[in-house]
Amino acid sequence: MEALGAPGAGIAIALENLFPPLPSEVILPLAGFTASQSEGKMSLFDAVLWTTLGSVVGALVLYGVGALLGRERVIFIASKLPLINVSDIEKTEAWFARHGKKTVFFGRMIPIFRSLISIPAGVERMPLSIFTILTLAGSLIWNTAFIMAGYALGEQYHLIEQYMGIVSKAVLGVVLLAVVIFIWVRLVDRRKGKHHAG
């Protein structure tokens, strides 16, 4: 960010969308802190503008990945995976058809899901204009909040990472628990099916 200014922050956030291990909870407060210290090199407005642009660009790339995969390829891949039924994909499609807009908007403010939500939006071919507007709105809120916090905290901006790290771990824990429950239920169903078949 010191070398490239606000565009550097935008590039970092675009990469964060593509590679979730790069946490926005670190990049955004740092951008706010940099804006508070940069003596004109990067303003708060520039930081919000460029990071939000980076968020949208990164999300559009992943939307494109989902669109290129398409429904048929996703179903084909799912049919080859153990413990996954095509009906799972169909249920997901139906759920996304009902709640897709809210999911894209609020998903931009949830760690980990920020990146992942763009792929099913692409698979389902959500209208690109709607996807872009929702992504822009959600990202603008998230980015502004963290940049402003970093700006206000100054050299203590790293405190945000500590607290959000707890939130990220909690989200990851819930996801892992859901995966474990899903696998357990599916294994139990298969055993019941074999028992009835016998």
Results as ranks from 00 to 15, higher is better:
47 A>P: 01
40 G>S: 05
184 W>N: 02
68 L>S: 13
81 L>T: 08
81 L>V: 05
119 I>C: 05
132 T>H: 02
32 G>F: 05
69 L>M: 13
98 R>G: 11
32 G>K: 02
59 A>K: 02
6 A>F: 11
146 F>R: 02
168 S>E: 14
168 S>Y: 12
109 M>D: 09
108 R>I: 08
123 V>E: 06
124 E>T: 11
121 A>T: 00
78 A>W: 04
89 I>E: 06
74 V>C: 05
181 I>P: 02
129 S>M: 09
156 Q>R: 14
129 S>H: 13
19 F>L: 13
134 L>K: 08
47 A>I: 01
188 V>R: 14
117 I>G: 01
42 M>G: 00
129 S>N: 11
4 L>Y: 15
122 G>D: 00
18 L>E: 11
192 K>A: 12
141 I>R: 10
45 F>V: 07
175 V>C: 03
57 V>A: 08
165 G>M: 07
142 W>P: 00
53 L>E: 05
161 E>V: 15
45 F>N: 02
96 F>A: 14
62 L>A: 05
4 L>K: 12
92 T>R: 08
19 F>A: 09
86 V>T: 13
171 V>E: 10
135 T>N: 03
147 I>V: 14
151 Y>S: 03
138 G>L: 11
184 W>F: 10
142 W>Q: 02
25 E>N: 13
98 R>I: 10
127 P>H: 08
109 M>E: 11
59 A>I: 05
107 G>N: 05
82 P>E: 05
178 A>M: 08
149 A>N: 03
96 F>W: 10
127 P>A: 06
62 L>D: 00
122 G>V: 02
160 I>P: 08
97 A>K: 15
19 F>I: 12
81 L>E: 04
48 V>G: 01
198 G>R: 13
60 L>A: 04
39 E>C: 02
132 T>R: 01
194 K>N: 10
2 E>C: 04
150 G>L: 03
78 A>I: 07
4 L>W: 13
34 T>S: 07
177 L>N: 04
145 A>H: 00
107 G>D: 09
146 F>D: 05
28 L>S: 03
5 G>R: 07
25 E>D: 09
25 E>F: 07
60 L>D: 00
189 D>H: 13
18 L>Q: 06
71 R>I: 04
118 S>Y: 00
151 Y>R: 01
136 L>E: 12
1 M>A: 14
21 P>C: 10
137 A>F: 09
69 L>Y: 00
30 L>N: 02
166 I>F: 15
170 A>Y: 08
26 V>L: 14
167 V>F: 14
142 W>T: 00
96 F>S: 12
